[in-house]
Design a protein around this nucleic acid. Structure first.
Length: 515
RNA sequence: GGUCCUGUGGUGCAGUCUGGAGUGCACGCCGGCCUGUCAAGCCGGAGGUCGCGGGUUCAAAUCCCGUCAGGACCGCCA
């Protein structure tokens, strides 16, 4: 660490270097003062090499000097500033909510914080400020926002850390559309602030449409390869493998070049996701013009089926058509996964295609006791037209929940909330939460609602994911100053670590060895 | 809980499949030279528990088993 003093002057003719930021000038008549001696850094402080993750994190203070990390964190700062400005401009009030919250055993596993003053009792760190912000609606803050830290004790991934940041917001007397407008403004502003480019139109898809066309609830709209329905074509088919309620296909450009082992791997992958099988057809150029098919199943196909496989999907010679026959949900999911596997683009490539996915199902699957599981959270308002189905056909109930998606990443989710006690009771009932149970878990929220709860709706944007995409990073660790490893440790500090026996004693906690 | 990939001087790699002396490359570090260079150049040098433990073998970085660490994914993430 040195301080250099001198005179800045233009470099002599012929020695300027346009590749350097300071390439036009030089320092003359320097004095150099050593402020602090330093050891050689543990790895090169540049962007040219990929350093082992554990080494980077152990010396994060050095790692963060690299130009890439400097740019990422500064870009993150610009995103936060733009979001905050957009929210304030739209009349939202920034309010902080507690980090020491109360257990709400529902959804993600919570981090527990032992209470020193009340032995045996625990606070938890909030997995989101969900309930607190609903209480703020009751309290009359009709437009709330917060750049909130959320904590979930679930396994880590490239796009998931224990703690993450959300632009959390809620508004009263507004529709889902109002929420989406407010969020869109914030993320579009943030994108422009971070990249200098303002994204184009933000599209809206229903959940059903997203599944039907892209086989996922978080479609990457940067590339086509859309799912095509072939159910009618194969309805009375003689091909046993393709007899199912739903037959879907995708065309893979240039996919005819894939070798047998790669195709077999795709079949295995399809089966791994839950398909009974995967049919593939290489589209070939026919002798007299037109096209033919190369596939083990070709000889079983009728003429109509054969031609539909290429005309419907738009496949040209040299392309590959993949077909899954199954239930609608499975056929879509499997082809959606294969579409990604074969077409996925690096996160930093192409344009930024935001889209809203709306009308999610209210429930997703059933729990051990056979009750439906809330797809979003239990305070989500069902679609008004589907209210009657709550008791009879829960799987068919759509909710007023919506996700924001960018290039195949789920950026966040939100919903219109239930503000009427009778509706909340019916939803709890459908979920198998008894009135006593509900009182125990969410009593304070239900009580608040009795004092006049406005209709309200909200959203939360995953800031780490948004910033990662805007930085062209595949991993959110690259946009977080001090992240954890995949096993939840911090190689720099050594956390988590044992605490002193005295501290344990104060907390009334005894550690038992793992089995 | 599971699947897969990776682990070799400070850093990034090759060597592992097909066992034969810690062999090699680039960067960095130390010393010297050079001094209009800017990823400087030239000469010399130091630096290794091949993640760890066990097994097979005359012989293991290399094969086998276990384990630890990092990563990607499945489960999980209302």
């Amino acid at each position: 660490m040195v301080a250099v003093e001198g005179t800045v002057r233009l470099r002599p003719e012929g020695t300027a270097n346009p590749d350097l930021a300071t390439g036009q000038v030089e320092l003359a008549d320097c004095t150099v003062e050593v402020l602090n001696a330093a050891e050689a850094p543990p790895f090169p402080v540049d962007d040219r090499t990929d350093i082992d993750e554990a080494v980077r994190l152990r010396h994060r203070f050095v790692d963060l000097r690299r130009p890439r990390m400097q740019a990422n964190l500064r870009r993150r700062s610009a995103v936060l500033a733009a979001m905050r400005a957009a929210m304030v401009r739209q009349g939202f009030v920034e309010i902080e909510t507690p980090l020491l919250w109360t257990p709400t055993p529902e959804g993600a596993r919570e981090f527990a914080v032992p209470s020193r003053l009340h032995h045996g009792d625990f606070y938890v760190l909030p997995q989101s400020p969900q309930i607190a912000k609903q209480l703020l609606m009751v309290a009359g803050f009709d437009r709330y926002f917060q750049i909130a830290r959320c904590l979930r004790d679930e396994d880590l991934r490239a796009d998931r850390q224990f703690e993450f940041a959300q632009l959390d917001l809620e508004l009263s007397f507004g529709s889902a559309g109002d929420v989406q407008e407010a969020v869109t403004e914030a993320v579009v502003d943030a994108t422009e602030a971070a990249t200098g480019e303002r994204p184009g139109t933000v599209e809206h898809l229903t959940w059903h449409e997203a599944m039907d066309r892209f086989g996922t609830d978080k479609p990457d709209l940067r590339f086509a390869m859309e799912l095509v329905d072939m159910s009618d074509i194969f309805a009375g088919s003689g091909v046993k493998a393709l007899q199912a309620p739903c037959v879907k296909a995708i065309a893979v450009p240039g996919g005819a070049a894939l070798g047998r082992s790669r195709l077999d791997a795709l079949v295995d992958r399809a089966k791994g996701i839950g398909a009974k099988g995967l049919a593939w057809f290489k589209v070939t150029a026919a002798a007299g013009g037109g096209s033919g098919l190369d596939s083990p199943l070709d000889k079983f196909l009728g003429d109509e089926e054969r031609s539909a496989l290429s005309t419907r999907t738009g496949a040209e010679p040299g392309d590959l058509v993949l077909v899954v026959a199954d239930g609608w949900r499975t056929a879509c999911t499997v082809l959606g996964a294969l579409r990604l596997e074969l077409g996925r683009m690096p996160v930093g490539e192409g344009e930024r295609r935001f889209c809203w996915v709306t009308d999610f199902p209210m429930f997703d699957g059933v729990d051990d006791a056979g009750y439906p599981v809330a797809a979003h959270h239990p305070f989500t308002m069902p679609h008004p037209e589907d209210l009657a189905l709550l008791g009879s056909d829960p799987a068919a109930v759509r909710s007023q929940a919506y996700d924001l998606v960018l290039n195949g990443w789920e950026l966040g989710s939100g919903s219109v909330r239930i503000h009427r006690e009778d509706v909340q009771r019916r939803v709890f009932d459908a979920l198998g939460i008894s009135p006593d149970d509900a009182e125990l878990r969410f009593g304070f929220l239900l009580a608040a609602f009795r004092y006049g709860a406005p209709p309200h709706a909200g959203f939360a944007v995953g800031i780490d994911r948004l910033v990662a995409i805007l930085c062209g990073e595949e991993n959110i660790r690259e946009v977080i100053a001090f992240p954890k490893t995949q096993s939840g440790t911090d190689p720099m500090t050594g956390a988590p670590k044992p605490i002193a026996p005295g501290a344990l004693h104060d907390l009334g906690i005894r550690v038992v060895p793992r089995d």
